[in-house]
């Protein structure tokens, strides 16, 4: 099938098998590998992207579902690591292995879009679907609070 959608602000068209998922199309066909595969079952959040602005698990999103819609991935969050969250992530030295962090940042970005100054409780509730095995949680909270302040 041929699917057209907006990816990080640009219209793209991909040819993919009918069972193609958004996650693997991004990663293997469009070579935007910042979006990660962690569980394939909407359990870990590593694959989080924005679909029309809503944080969405790409692993369980069929490619056909994004037709004519708008997808933002970590690569599209900013051109130059200048999103307040990316800056805060460096400032607070959040990532360890880094594998979960695209998902963490995309989930957090959606939070800050809707909630200017999230409380700690709001942060924790909103971020709970994204697992970090390395245990960077306390720094994630700190970085989100820093970014919210900067905005």
């Amino acid at each position: 099938m041929k699917i057209t959608f907006k990816l990080n602000g640009k219209t793209v068209q991909v040819e993919a098998p009918s069972d193609a998922s958004l996650l693997w199309t991004l990663r293997e066909r469009l070579e935007l590998t910042g979006t990660k595969f962690g569980c394939g079952a909407a359990l870990c959040g590593a694959c989080t992207v924005h679909l029309d602005g809503i944080p969405t698990r790409a692993c369980i999103t069929p490619l056909s579902m994004v037709s004519r819609r708008s997808v933002t991935t970590i690569e599209g969050l900013s051109e130059d690591q200048s999103h307040p969250l990316q800056k805060a992530w460096v400032e607070a030295q959040v990532p360890q292995c880094g594998y979960c962090q695209s998902g963490q940042i995309m989930q957090a970005a959606a939070l800050l879009e809707n909630t200017k100054n999230p409380s700690r409780e709001q942060i924790v509730a909103y971020m709970n679907g994204v697992i970090c095995r390395c245990g960077t949680y306390t720094r994630i909270i700190k970085a989100i609070e820093m970014a919210a302040k900067e905005r």
Binding site: L32, K36, Q81, W89, V94
Partner: peptide, 18 residues
């Protein structure tokens, strides 16, 4: 050293080799 690339999806894991 490795942290900036881990905030924009550019850090390369083997999974990312295409």
């Amino acid at each position: 050293y490795d942290i900036p690339a881990k905030t924009d999806g550019s850090a390369q894991f083997a999974m990312d080799v295409v």
